[in-house]
Amino acid sequence: MTDALIYLGCAALLAGAIFTLLAAIGVLRLPDLYMRMHAASKAGAVGGGLILLAVALVCFDAAVALRAIIGVGFLLLTTPVSAHLLARASHYAGYRADELMEIDELKSKSGQSLM
């Protein structure tokens, strides 16, 4: 039983580390700010959450496990909020996406409010 939990924790830890690395690769490789935000907010949240989950699985202490799980919930709540705030702020401040962008239905609106 405890061994199974440890192996499960190891799997979660490795998956979390790999997702974090992929988020970093995404932030480095993707061509513009908003696309990088996808990588950082999704893969980053999943990576960090999986590592905290691994801590909860491997330690055999209810108080620690509970804190780790609360930490996962906290991470999943705050990451989208910070990504959303940053995206909104940069769009209003006039950081434009690159020429790949197909439709930008927010552009005209923010253009008006900038005046």
Binding site: A83, A87, L106, K109
Partner: peptide
């Protein structure tokens, strides 16, 4: 924001 391929930016 946390689901495939989408990220919410603003609410009117």
């Amino acid at each position: 924001t946390l689901t495939p391929g989408t990220l919410s930016i603003d609410v009117s």
